[in-house]
Design a protein around this nucleic acid. Structure first.
Length: 580
RNA sequence: GCACCCAUAGCUCAGCUGGAUAGAGCGCUGCCCUCCGAAGGCAGAGGUCUGAGGUUCGAAUCCUCAUGGGUGCGCCA
């Protein structure tokens, strides 16, 4: 149930009737007619801009249209009043029965209240994290993981069929570096003294990998030249790193559907097939790029390269797909990977990258647009940097200084729920200061606890009521006489609940899960407000003298907890039963 | 030099396919527990939405330019 969509449909019907009666020209385009919550509560429950949007095409004054529209809306039992205001807004007040219906719907549908069929089963591939398999995930990856996962859940909630996917860069030079580093740890496990030259990974996390390699193969690689062991060690090390990464993701409750190996694209003709697809469209050619403007790289010289004509699809320059030694650049397998995604039949693609990959957005979009003739949209969401703060000071991250903070460290410090919620209290493209000390504080300073507290309060009321022998099952509350919810403050809170399905659609459409977090904060605020008004107005307390009234009021509180629960579910956060 | 992202209250940030008098938290001032959890609530003060043009009935929102920050920029993925 989406109340705003319902009232919008009512409005459009009324406009159609006006046209049939000759009061408006026929065939007006109503797609820009909106029904929204007004910014100022004094303006009523909803407002429509219909009169202003249609004034020009109908060649009528906005107020005349609004005057004609108002009585048609008021004929509906759900509408208590419709008044013309301002430049031509129609402010709508809803009948009390509407709010009672909303609460009843939440109690009947549970966390499915707010689900949308907007996605219409469209398949979406969400690729996120995709960190190089060379070490544990760090704080930056954490934001990508949380964002991508919440976005995926949000899209599922809005009716899409979602695949969560991780692209493993296991074919480049950096996994050779990994293999050499593990080899050194392997020698160390055999008692050799080793040191780690530049261009190797000295991290302790490879010590157990070296030992595991020894346990597996004994000493067969000791004293052997690199070509003898490189491929084997690389495979072993990469697998070990992916185990590490999967374990890190599990700490956050992130579970991928697909891990896609870059290496699997090589030697199978799949890169060639993707490039051939572009060549077939006349988009591959041999040429020389202009030198970049401004400061030149020192060793710059003009070279002939195999290029993808990405400028035909909005990129700034054409991009090389093959190195001068004939090997593919990193971009070629990327193209092949996305070609593979489109061939798997996804209706749309989403990539979540760190902001430092912003420079690849245009070429990636160009590649997908070219491969699908603009048929499959690719949205790329960039997550900005995370700064960890403690006591107002930035925790500087430095591997050398030993202050490198990993995902595992962060989750260890503040827990998965707090990590996830805080990371989603900022828009993805805004930098995030993560105050580790504040995140653990149980106060209003901390939005996680504020929302959790609201949920816990409701649970507390339910426990208290149950102890008094009141049936507080959702079925019983839903069957209660909800007309007892007759106070404006209660209607206002129910109105917040009614916004939930609408918010889900907006958040899903814009690919912005942070909106869910802000909505939950707002909803929690509404509950806290009503709760405290009960201090001064006993009739607003949830527990009343008679059972029937109690059940109605508890029903409202329960409905709030259900929606909080649904929202937290999308964010991947467990609702609190009580605060401790 | 070019591209992308960003600029909203003292601070940290929301702001809905353009909508009415721009919101929240922190901080500041003053209130509210014989009462379901005060880990909360209420009220007040605080704004040329970086600047200048443009489109529109209407711009924080869209377009152009400027200023100030961040990120990236041909054989690293």
């Amino acid at each position: 149930m989406n109340l705003f969509a319902d009232i919008r449909a009512l409005t459009v019907d009324a406009l159609t009737n006006l046209a049939e009666d000759g009061l408006l020209p026929p065939g007006l385009d109503t797609k820009n007619v909106s029904v929204e919550p007004p910014r100022d509560a004094a303006h009523g429950d909803m407002a429509t801009n219909a009169a202003m949007v249609l004034a020009k095409p109908a060649k009528k004054k906005p107020r005349d249209i609004a005057d004609a529209l108002a009585p048609r809306l008021m004929a509906d039992p759900r509408i208590a009043s419709a008044e013309v205001a301002g430049p031509g807004f129609l402010n709508i007040r809803l009948a009390p029965v509407v709010w009672q219906t909303v609460v009843g719907a939440v109690l009947a549908q549970g966390t499915a209240f707010g689900r949308s069929d907007m996605g219409a089963g469209q398949t979406v591939n969400v690729e996120y994290v995709s960190a190089n398999p060379t070490g544990p995930l760090h704080v930056g990856h954490t934001r990508g993981a949380v964002f991508g996962d919440a976005l995926a859940s949000l899209l599922e909630y809005a009716g899409h069929t979602v695949t969560r996917e991780y692209y493993i860069n296991d074919a480049g030079a950096q996994v050779d570096v990994l293999a050499r580093s593990v080899y050194l740890r392997y020698l160390e496990a055999h008692g050799e003294a080793v040191d780690f030259p530049d261009g190797t990974y000295p991290g302790d996390y490879l010590v157990p990998v070296g030992q595991a390699l020894k346990a597996k193969v004994g000493d067969v690689y000791v004293g052997k030249a690199e070509p003898f062991w490189l491929a084997d060690v690389r495979a072993f090390a990469t697998e070990a790193m992916m185990d590490l990464i999967r374990a890190d993701l599990a700490r956050l409750g992130v579970e991928m559907d697909v891990f896609f190996s870059e290496k699997s694209l090589y030697g199978t003709g799949r890169i060639e097939a993707a490039i051939d697809a572009l060549r077939g469209k006349g988009l591959i050619y041999t040429g020389t790029l202009e030198p970049p403007k401004g400061k030149l790289p020192e060793d710059w010289e003009a070279r002939e390269q195999t290029l993808f004509k990405s400028t035909d699809y909005g990129d700034d320059v054409d991009r090389p797909i093959m190195k001068s030694d004939g090997a593919w650049t990193y971009f070629a397998p990327d193209i092949a990977y996305h070609f593979d995604k489109t061939e798997r039949g996804f209706d749309s693609l989403i990539n979540v990258f760190g902001a430092d990959h912003g420079g690849y957005v245009k070429r990636m979009k160009a590649a997908v647009a070219a491969l699908t003739d603009n048929g499959v949209p690719l949205d790329i969401k960039l997550t900005q940097l995370v700064k960890l703060m403690r006591d107002g000071q930035e925790l500087k991250m430095s591997k050398r200084a030993g202050t490198f903070v990993t995902l595992a460290d962060l989750v260890e410090m503040v827990g998965s729920d707090v990590t996830r919620f805080i990371m989603l209290t900022r828009k993805n493209d805004a930098p995030l200061d993560f105050a580790v000390d504040k995140a653990l504080e149980q106060s209003k300073d901390n939005p996680v606890y504020y929302v959790q507290y609201a949920h816990a309060r409701v649970m507390s009321v339910l426990r208290k009521a149950a102890a008094q022998g009141i049936d507080v099952s959702d079925a019983a509350l839903g069957a209660a006489d909800l007309t007892k919810l007759d106070h404006a403050a209660e209607h206002a809170l129910a109105g917040k609940l009614a916004e939930w399905p609408r918010l889900v659609e907006i958040a899903a459409r814009t690919h912005e899960p942070h909106r869910v977090a802000f909505y939950l904060y707002d909803l929690a605020s509404g509950l806290h407000g009503l709760w405290n008004r009960g201090n001064e107005e006993p009739s607003l307390r949830f527990l009343q003298e008679d059972v029937a009234t109690s059940q109605a009021k508890i029903g409202l509180a329960r409905a709030v907890s259900v929606v909080i629960s649904a929202g937290l579910g999308i964010l991947g956060v467990e609702p609190a039963q009580e605060m401790r």
